[in-house]
Simulated assay, not measured.
Amino acid sequence: MSNYAPAPVGPTAATTGHSILQVGPVNPDVQAALATEFGALRLPEAPEQHEAFLDEYAAGIRVAVCSGRFGVGTELMGRLPELRAVVNFGVGYDTTDMAQARERGIQVSNTPDVLTDCVADTALALYLDVLRRISAADRYVRRGDWTAKGNYPLAVRASGKRVGILGLGRIGRAIAHRLEAFGCEIHYHNRRPVDGVPYGYRSSAGELAAAVDVLIVAAAGGPGSAGLVDARVLENLGPEGYLVNIARGTVIDEDALVAALAQGRLGGAGLDVFAHEPQVPAALLELENVVLLPHLGSGTVETRQDMARLTLENLRSFLRDGALATPV
């Protein structure tokens, strides 16, 4: 008798239930479908229960459904000998062992395009907030400082800035498009130049930072980009430069960023992501020139509905045809 009962069995569970594994929390609509439509298994939350659960079920699992925060890492993937697909809710998939997936022929999907606009909007909101000090000015009013201390100090103009975009993929291009309306001069760095764009290409993150007033990080996460924005990049950006990150916290050397901000060697930062979420470095909480968001880049009702729909479309497509709708 198993100690780990699967989720309630739905009409198709006889053929799909124990071959599907939910890893970590997922979107409520996706979770409801996994339970009622597919009768999927769910990996226990308590790590000490994983071993017994996998001993019982691992051999039959063919598909794992996860989020960008809780992927299928090296150890878990190694315990699933029949795994054929990882269906990911989110555009980022750096928490999944992609090297092992490629080696074993495991397909991986994500949810591109449907979240591009909302993430780009978040980047623009952070850009405007950190330069014009919107959140800080709001706090100034709420504290009664406008009455007690007079007018709020001057901020920095957001229009016409030289902006560097680190990672000119779908989201990076959407950010650039929005900034064009502000009369900004756009530069970018990618692994290779992008054909057909009118923006200036820079050969490294450091060179990009030295050429701009604001650096917006939109690069994919994962081992290949870890620490890409390091102390030297931040030094090149300088005490009058600003940093916005809507990518992954690991892309930035967080210790170097905290030090640069605390010591006045960087003008300010707008951050939606952090290296050890949901933990945020305590030093950042005290700084008025830093805007902090709880990783809500795609966090709108409409976008999360679209992401859930596409996640389930990938799952159904794989179960039907053995192919994912939006493979990585």
Score class of each variant (00 low, 15 high):
residue 1 M to T: 15
residue 1 M to N: 07
residue 4 Y to R: 04
residue 4 Y to A: 04
residue 5 A to L: 13
residue 7 A to P: 15
residue 12 T to Q: 09
residue 16 T to N: 14
residue 17 G to E: 00
residue 17 G to T: 02
residue 20 I to R: 10
residue 21 L to G: 02
residue 27 N to Q: 15
residue 28 P to T: 11
residue 29 D to I: 08
residue 36 T to D: 15
residue 44 P to L: 04
residue 53 F to P: 08
residue 60 G to P: 15
residue 60 G to Q: 10
residue 61 I to E: 01
residue 62 R to Y: 09
residue 63 V to T: 04
residue 66 C to H: 03
residue 68 G to K: 02
residue 70 F to N: 09
residue 71 G to Y: 09
residue 73 G to Y: 07
residue 75 E to V: 15
residue 78 G to H: 02
residue 81 P to C: 09
residue 82 E to R: 15
residue 84 R to F: 05
residue 84 R to T: 06
residue 86 V to R: 04
residue 90 G to V: 07
residue 92 G to L: 08
residue 92 G to I: 11
residue 95 T to S: 14
residue 98 M to K: 02
residue 100 Q to K: 11
residue 104 R to A: 14
residue 105 G to E: 03
residue 107 Q to S: 15
residue 109 S to H: 01
residue 112 P to H: 01
residue 113 D to I: 01
residue 113 D to K: 12
residue 113 D to A: 10
residue 115 L to C: 12
residue 120 A to R: 12
residue 123 A to M: 07
residue 128 L to G: 02
residue 129 D to H: 02
residue 130 V to Y: 00
residue 131 L to C: 13
residue 132 R to M: 00
residue 134 I to C: 11
residue 135 S to G: 14
residue 138 D to I: 15
residue 142 R to I: 04
residue 142 R to N: 11
residue 143 R to Y: 10
residue 144 G to C: 05
residue 160 G to Y: 07
residue 166 L to W: 03
residue 172 G to Y: 00
residue 178 R to I: 04
residue 184 C to E: 09
residue 186 I to F: 01
residue 187 H to N: 14
residue 189 H to C: 04
residue 192 R to Y: 02
residue 198 P to S: 11
residue 202 R to L: 14
residue 202 R to K: 15
residue 204 S to N: 02
residue 211 A to K: 02
residue 212 V to L: 03
residue 214 V to C: 05
residue 215 L to R: 07
residue 221 G to P: 05
residue 226 A to T: 09
residue 231 A to E: 12
residue 234 L to F: 08
residue 235 E to S: 14
residue 237 L to V: 08
residue 238 G to K: 10
residue 238 G to Q: 03
residue 240 E to P: 07
residue 252 I to L: 03
residue 255 D to N: 06
residue 256 A to L: 09
residue 260 A to L: 09
residue 262 A to Y: 01
residue 263 Q to E: 15
residue 271 L to D: 08
residue 272 D to E: 05
residue 272 D to W: 14
residue 274 F to I: 05
residue 274 F to A: 11
residue 279 Q to L: 13
residue 281 P to K: 13
residue 282 A to I: 02
residue 285 L to G: 14
residue 286 E to D: 14
residue 286 E to W: 02
residue 286 E to L: 13
residue 286 E to F: 06
residue 288 E to C: 06
residue 288 E to V: 09
residue 290 V to W: 00
residue 292 L to H: 12
residue 294 P to S: 11
residue 295 H to C: 08
residue 297 G to Q: 11
residue 299 G to I: 05
residue 305 Q to I: 07
residue 306 D to G: 14
residue 309 R to K: 12
residue 311 T to F: 06
residue 316 R to W: 07
residue 322 G to K: 06
residue 324 L to Q: 07
